[in-house]
């Protein structure tokens, strides 16, 4: 049975959760370990830490956070951000992370994907892709295609494409997101974490066409990310986007919805989930 995973994502800077988290009863709302344990207890299927720590000398804090998390959290967790070498991956995995997320470094040097996969197995390599819709110049006679329709399989789908961005969405790299995802899988990615830069932070829902296109192109699981504002968005990600996992941050952090509510909504829509 295929089951869809619900994954809260925590942004962490120097061992502290950066975006505000509005849980009651937390001793320390900035402590990623306490939050992670809370999500584990609530029934989250996995966790992703996105480490945005800038300077490399502060990386030790991240390793320490991973070590503490591994002592208290007994569901899988991924750590992404700043992984540039096999050694970076090794340190995180040895400290207790189950998977490492690589983004910019994989675009800069795609062999890194194979190197980490060869060393530790494909199951621990999550290639994170930040994608933005390409805007086309109007074709003669047809006019600009309205690319904003959110229905995969519509007449516009064929002309849609998305470009890969790196450095936290600041740098366009000229790669097609769907092609890059497929190539990443060939190189040894065990999972794709797909974020729509257009939707991230908007609360308008996933880019379902992007999600469906990447999911169809990949033989490995795809995590949909970017734009979740309602529980129905999670359902759409699984049903229409064919995502294998749905990621959200603010709706969980700010207590708008619980993991249990998310799973209930998915189950009611006929999406199999592990009950919270």
């Amino acid at each position: 049975m295929k089951t869809t995973r619900v994954i809260p994502c925590l942004d962490v800077d120097s061992g502290r959760v950066v975006k505000g988290v509005n849980f009651v009863e937390l001793r320390d709302a900035g402590d990623p370990v306490e939050l992670a344990a809370r999500y584990d207890a609530e029934g989250a299927d996995e966790l992703i830490f996105l480490d945005i720590t800038a300077s490399s000398d502060r990386r030790e804090t991240t390793i320490e956070m991973v070590r503490r998390t591994a002592e208290e959290v007994f569901i899988p967790f991924t750590v992404g951000g700043g992984v540039r070498t096999v050694e970076d991956a090794r340190r995180l995995l040895r400290a207790g992370a189950d998977k490492v997320g690589i983004n910019t470094a994989a675009v800069d040097r795609p062999e890194l994907i194979s190197e980490i996969a060869d060393e530790f197995g494909v199951q621990c390599v999550v290639v994170a892709i930040d994608a933005r819709r390409r805007v086309f110049a109007p074709q003669s006679g047809s006019g600009a295609e309205a690319a904003s329709q959110n229905s995969p399989g519509s007449a516009q789908t064929d002309s849609l494409s998305w470009e890969v961005f790196t450095h936290g969405g600041r740098t366009a790299v000229g790669l097609d997101a769907v092609e890059w995802a497929a190539r990443a899988v060939e190189l040894g990615a065990g999972e794709i974490l797909l974020t729509s830069m257009d939707r991230d932070g908007t609360k308008e829902g996933f880019d379902l066409q992007l999600t469906a296109a990447v999911s169809a192109a990949c033989s490995v699981p795809v995590i949909a990310s970017g734009g979740v504002g309602t529980l129905d968005h999670l359902v759409q990600g699984a049903v229409t986007g064919h995502a294998d996992a749905v990621l959200a941050a603010s709706i969980f952090h700010f207590g708008e919805f619980t993991i249990a509510q998310a799973k209930q909504a998915l189950a009611q829509a006929g999406v199999a989930v592990r009950p919270a």
Binding site: M1, K2, T3, T4, R5, D45, V122, Q123, G190, E191, S219, V220, P221, D244, A245, R274, P275
Partner: peptide, 28 residues
């Protein structure tokens, strides 16, 4: 099916074992 299987799944216990004592018939 997508590979790897990277997800939670429900077990069907085929034989009694002390390893699964107290876990019910279909643990995740």
């Amino acid at each position: 099916v997508k590979q790897p299987q990277m997800q939670w799944n429900q077990l069907s216990l085929m034989n009694d074992s002390p390893l699964f004592e107290g876990l019910g018939e279909n643990p995740w």
